[in-house]
Amino acid sequence: MKQKLLILIMSLYSIVSLAQNKEPIDNENTLFQSINISGHIQSNGDIENVHVINKTAQIFTVSNGKGFFEISGKISDTLVFSSVQYQLKEIIIDSRIYQSGICNVSLQDKVNELDEVIVGKILTGNLMSDIKNTEGDPPINFYDVGIPGYAGKIATQSERRLNEATTGAGIIPLNPIINAITGRTKMLKNHIEIERREALMQNIKARLSNDFFASNPMDEDLRMDFFYFCADDENFIKHCKSQTDFKILIFLRQKYRQYIKNLTSTED
């Protein structure tokens, strides 16, 4: 009996010793793991399609119609919130945000202040006096004088040339036939396609360039060439025309990887 009791005591002692000598779990390592961080953007204006960029991890997303977003991040990552109508805001993920997994943001409207400019004569506030001091005639348009006018979209020079090349007078117009045979019609259609790609590319560059390169670094002198590289893609119009900023950014990210890969292979 004493022998069994001695064995039991020794076993308990061994278990306690192992528990005391066991190294504590390293909780600090968990702080360097990325987690999904959810958040809500608050503002007085439209909060849809606000660009949310993890500048450290070089990933991005956009807010939905109600201002909610979700993005991956870890301690010390920098989140950038960017939109045309709001001031740029940066938030560094701290332990509070990391542990809660929540990052709510309030954005301030972007106000472009202009220098005070006085145009014309200064108004006094006296209606009759101000009317007498005001000069200028009201504008006249073709409706005022009874002249029929075109109120639709103004065609570009290439579009006007194409219209001229594909229309003509007479029972059998010769212009369309001759231009089709000589290839001029096809050439003009190609010009119009190039102009539309150029216009769309310039629009995307003006709106999304800063936000895109914040998470996808590229030398300044290569950026214009990169956008032309994107516009040359046969699916450029399909992926970028009348699409949300998020879908356009996804397309740009795919082309970015291809562009960087081409640069690397050229250097090698």
Results as ranks from 00 to 15, higher is better:
residue 194 I to L: 12
residue 207 R to C: 06
residue 212 F to C: 00
residue 197 R to K: 15
residue 206 A to V: 11
residue 210 N to I: 04
residue 207 R to F: 00
residue 179 N to E: 07
residue 193 E to T: 08
residue 187 M to D: 12
residue 183 G to V: 07
residue 206 A to S: 14
residue 188 L to Q: 06
residue 182 T to C: 08
residue 212 F to A: 02
residue 191 H to N: 12
residue 180 A to Y: 10
residue 195 E to N: 05
residue 204 I to L: 02
residue 192 I to M: 12
residue 203 N to W: 10
residue 182 T to L: 14
residue 207 R to Q: 11
residue 179 N to K: 04
residue 186 K to V: 09
residue 197 R to S: 03
residue 207 R to E: 14
residue 190 N to G: 15
residue 181 I to V: 15
residue 194 I to Q: 15
residue 200 L to F: 02
residue 181 I to C: 07
residue 214 A to S: 08
residue 182 T to F: 14
residue 198 E to K: 09
residue 194 I to F: 13
residue 195 E to D: 11
residue 214 A to E: 05
residue 197 R to D: 02
residue 185 T to H: 11
residue 189 K to E: 15
residue 204 I to C: 03
residue 203 N to I: 04
residue 191 H to Q: 14
residue 179 N to W: 13
residue 187 M to K: 15
residue 199 A to K: 10
residue 190 N to I: 05
residue 204 I to K: 02
residue 192 I to W: 08
residue 188 L to G: 00
residue 210 N to F: 07
residue 189 K to P: 07
residue 210 N to T: 03
residue 209 S to C: 07
residue 192 I to H: 07
residue 213 F to G: 02
residue 204 I to N: 03
residue 201 M to H: 09
residue 189 K to L: 10
residue 210 N to W: 03
residue 215 S to K: 04
residue 209 S to W: 05
residue 207 R to V: 06
residue 205 K to C: 10
residue 209 S to R: 08
residue 197 R to V: 03
residue 188 L to D: 01
residue 195 E to H: 06
residue 215 S to I: 06
residue 199 A to D: 13
residue 183 G to I: 09
residue 183 G to S: 07
residue 205 K to E: 15
residue 187 M to P: 02
residue 211 D to Y: 03
residue 181 I to W: 13
residue 199 A to T: 09
residue 209 S to M: 09
residue 194 I to C: 06
residue 185 T to F: 12
residue 215 S to T: 03
residue 196 R to N: 14
residue 196 R to I: 07
residue 212 F to H: 05
residue 192 I to L: 10
residue 196 R to M: 11
residue 184 R to M: 11
residue 191 H to E: 15
residue 206 A to M: 12
residue 194 I to E: 14
residue 209 S to Y: 08
residue 188 L to S: 07
residue 191 H to A: 09
residue 184 R to Y: 08
residue 209 S to N: 12
residue 193 E to G: 00
residue 195 E to A: 04
residue 180 A to L: 13
residue 198 E to T: 06
residue 206 A to P: 02
residue 212 F to G: 04
residue 190 N to L: 09
residue 179 N to D: 07
residue 202 Q to I: 11
residue 180 A to G: 13
residue 198 E to F: 10
residue 202 Q to A: 12
residue 184 R to L: 10
residue 187 M to A: 13
residue 183 G to R: 06
residue 208 L to P: 00
residue 181 I to S: 07
residue 206 A to L: 14
residue 200 L to E: 11
residue 195 E to V: 01
residue 187 M to G: 06
residue 181 I to L: 14
residue 182 T to Y: 14
residue 214 A to F: 01
residue 190 N to F: 05
residue 195 E to Y: 07
residue 211 D to E: 06
residue 204 I to R: 01
residue 185 T to C: 05
residue 214 A to V: 02
residue 203 N to R: 11
residue 187 M to C: 08
residue 186 K to L: 11
residue 183 G to P: 09
residue 215 S to R: 05
residue 187 M to Y: 14
residue 192 I to E: 10
residue 193 E to K: 13
residue 215 S to H: 01
residue 211 D to T: 09
residue 215 S to E: 04
residue 187 M to I: 07
residue 200 L to C: 04
residue 184 R to G: 05
residue 196 R to A: 09
residue 203 N to G: 06
residue 192 I to T: 07
residue 186 K to M: 08
residue 215 S to L: 04
residue 192 I to R: 07
residue 196 R to Y: 10
residue 202 Q to L: 15
residue 203 N to F: 12
residue 202 Q to M: 14
residue 211 D to C: 03
residue 200 L to Q: 08
residue 204 I to Q: 06
residue 197 R to F: 00
